Simulated assay, not measured.
Amino acid sequence: MSVPETKAQRVRAVLELLEHAECGARDLTARLGLPEKKLRSVQRDLEELCLSGDVERLSGGHYRRPPRATTLNPVEALAVYSAARMLYHHAAEYNGHYLTALEKLTAQLPGAARRVAAQANAAYQQKKGGSDLAASRTFELVARAWLEGRVLRFKYHSLQKVSTVELAIYFIELNPQNRQAYAIGVNRLKGGERPFVFRLARMREAQLLSDATVIPEDFHPMDYLSGAWGIMTGDPVRVELFFSPAVKDRVQEVHLGPGAECQVLASGHTRVCLTVSGWLELAPWILGWGGEVEVLGPPELREAVAHAHSKGTRVYGR
């Protein structure tokens, strides 16, 4: 949200914030990016809005716009709540844009659920003191680059090296395994038309360039990610797993992706076969099952899992 410069802009901004959240005058002043000396102006705005009926005063010095009746059915309300909770867990560091999004989602919920979600939003707001301003700025520039169709230039700190990237962003995705955000697109400094995946947390010194980008009509994000266990793509690898009878029911509850085979054998063991775009992201999930699963193939994955278990045994001295 840009800083309002006139009274009309300030009043509109106040109404927009109070549409989705309960705030006090001091909090409104801070969230609008206004200097402390404008606090009295915001207080006068609130007094006028209360007299006109556009805003109501609550206990504790807070204000809000009168709630509107929700048009969501119970399943839709649960979907909105789930989206808000996923956004909350994804945003480990405070981001003002995320808070506004959370509040807008919360405002669509029925009374009881809205109250609980608002309490979670208030808890998220407490993270503000330790927020990473550079990370928030990066998120903002990535969003603008994607939505405005512009090239994003940044230094990318991978685990192996630091490189300069000029990215035409095709898609933004949250990794279902670690809830981190990734940008998918073409690095024009690298050449070629193959999209690559870049983790936002590893971007530094981001700059929004004026150069325009166009997302190819034949690019489909779900096709691109169809074989990924998390976010990584690569050559397809067939993986075969053998689970013990003790975890049979738990295995049945796991969404293994399209094309996966899951067969319960007469012995009570469960045989799972699936094809993924590389097994690196799959290995931590397999290790999470401990000794309840055996990797039958491919040999490289079996060796990596066995090596990790061996290291664990040495750490615990058994």
Rank of each mutant, 00 (worst) to 15 (best):
W229C: 02
C23Y: 08
L287Y: 04
Y170G: 01
A206C: 13
V264H: 00
R179D: 11
L17C: 08
R40Q: 12
G185H: 01
L189I: 14
A13Y: 01
R10Q: 02
R144Y: 02
A228R: 01
V239R: 00
R85S: 02
A69S: 11
A120Y: 13
G53Y: 09
K311D: 06
L274S: 04
V151L: 11
G257E: 05
F196C: 06
K190W: 04
K161P: 00
R64C: 07
F198K: 02
L109F: 03
Q126R: 15
E48D: 12
E294W: 07
G234A: 07
R202L: 08
L280V: 10
A183S: 13
E193H: 10
D45M: 02
A77I: 12
N121P: 05
G149W: 08
G53R: 14
R44N: 12
V237Y: 02
R137T: 10
S136C: 12
R137L: 11
T164F: 05
F243K: 00
L287T: 07
L87Y: 07
E253L: 15
A123D: 15
P67F: 06
A113G: 01
N178E: 02
G234P: 12
A92M: 08
R26D: 12
E148N: 09
R314D: 09
T213K: 07
Y81V: 06
G317P: 05
Q125F: 11
V295C: 04
L208M: 03
L280H: 04
A201D: 15
D249V: 09
I286W: 03
Y170V: 07
D132I: 06
L46P: 00
M86V: 14
A201C: 06
L34C: 03
A212W: 08
V214Q: 14
A143E: 11
E36P: 05
H255S: 09
G227E: 04
V264L: 04
R65C: 12
S210W: 13
F196V: 11
G111S: 14
G288E: 11
I231R: 03
R199N: 13
R271K: 15
L287Q: 09
D223L: 14
P67W: 08
W289L: 05
V315D: 01
L39P: 02
F219N: 05
S52L: 13
L102D: 00
V247G: 06
E103V: 06
E76F: 06
L280Y: 03
A8N: 09
S158I: 13
P176Q: 02
L28H: 04
R64G: 06
Y156I: 09
G60R: 03
A183C: 13
P110N: 05
E56K: 06
K104W: 10
S2I: 14
V254Q: 10
P67D: 03
K248Y: 00
L28V: 10
V239M: 02
